Amino acid sequence: MKAHWWSCVLGLLCMPSGVTLSASKVSQDPKSISLTRVNSSAEITCSTLQSDPMSLSLYRRFPDTMQIAFLDLKNGLVSKTTPGAGFHGRIRAAPSQWIGDGHGFTVQLSLLGLEDTNLYYCSWEFFKKETTTHETLSGPGTVIIVRERDPQEQCRGHILDRILIGLSVAAVCVVLFLCAALIVRRKRFRRRFRPARAAERTRPNRPQHSCPQHGVQHDPYLMTSVNSSYYRGIL
């Protein structure tokens, strides 16, 4: 497709001077580059102020000049033929009402493909009674560039892609920010953290067993005395 586009640009720069000079007697619309998409249609209006044209042809410029449509205008009758290969059933021609005193036809190319990107120009043929010769006048040409999608859709697609990329970058930045915040908070927590000492185990209070104090039993038959001399006196 790029090769077709560059060939059209070179064609505009290297068009013969005869075609440029004849543009004052014939006109062709649109003059600017027409951008369209696959399987769509494009219209080219060819007009002239010269009287009694014999025929009108539409040519494709590159890679070789090829006649893709021919309108026979003799005797006020219009008959169309499509000699160009690959254009059968894809070209329609209708008279233009806004031309006024001149002559004009609108040629429609339908079912456009990427290979139809090219430079198209109209060519009128006249018969000069003064010199009994045929004169050919060509229009300035119309460049048709066919793309896979509509340029507006491509722009929308690029905008959506940029929005998605922006949202993805923002999401990544948010995740990184949260991770950094968690890491900083964890470091601060470690610095301030002081482990608690283990509580000393308290031994359970054991019950204190008090030995019962046995009182001195008095036996009537046994007499005891602390003083040993007492026993000696008795014995």
Rank of each mutant, 00 (worst) to 15 (best):
R147H: 05
Q97T: 14
R197W: 10
Q108G: 07
C155P: 13
L112I: 06
A171I: 09
L164E: 11
P151F: 02
V172M: 06
G157D: 06
T117L: 09
Y121W: 07
R156A: 15
K129F: 13
A196F: 04
D101M: 10
I99K: 13
E130K: 07
R147Y: 03
H134E: 10
R188V: 00
L167A: 09
L160V: 12
G113S: 09
E130Y: 00
Y120W: 10
L164H: 08
R149M: 06
C155F: 07
G113F: 08
C173K: 01
R192V: 00
F189L: 04
R149C: 07
N118G: 11
R149T: 08
E148P: 13
R192F: 00
E148A: 08
F189A: 01
H103L: 05
G141S: 02
L164W: 07
Y121C: 12
E125C: 11
F177K: 13
E153P: 00
I145T: 11
G141M: 05
A181I: 13
C155R: 10
V172G: 09
A198H: 07
S168I: 04
A171V: 04
V175K: 08
R185V: 00
S123C: 07
Q108I: 10
I145C: 13
L176C: 11
T117W: 01
T117M: 04
D150M: 06
A196S: 02
I159E: 10
G139H: 02
R190H: 01
P151H: 03
F105L: 12
E135K: 06
N118M: 08
D116K: 06
A196K: 03
I183S: 02
F193E: 00
R162P: 09
A180T: 15
S138I: 05
K129H: 12
G113Q: 13
L167I: 05
T117I: 03
E130N: 10
I163D: 04
A181R: 04
G102N: 13
V172E: 01
K129Q: 09
R190Q: 04
R149A: 09
R194E: 00
V143H: 09
I183K: 01
C173T: 07
T131K: 05
L109P: 14
R149K: 04
P140I: 04
F105K: 05
R192E: 00
P140A: 06
F105A: 07
I165P: 10
I165V: 15
C179P: 09
G157A: 12
T142H: 07
T142L: 08
Q108N: 09
H158G: 08
A171G: 05
V146Q: 02
G139M: 01
D150C: 09
I145S: 05
P95E: 07
F189S: 00
W98G: 15
R186N: 01
D161G: 11
Q154M: 08
N118W: 02
R191M: 08
C173H: 04
P95S: 12
F127S: 09
R185I: 02
L178S: 11
L182T: 05
T136R: 12
P151L: 01
R197I: 04
D161Y: 10
Q154V: 08
E115V: 14
A198T: 02
H103T: 13
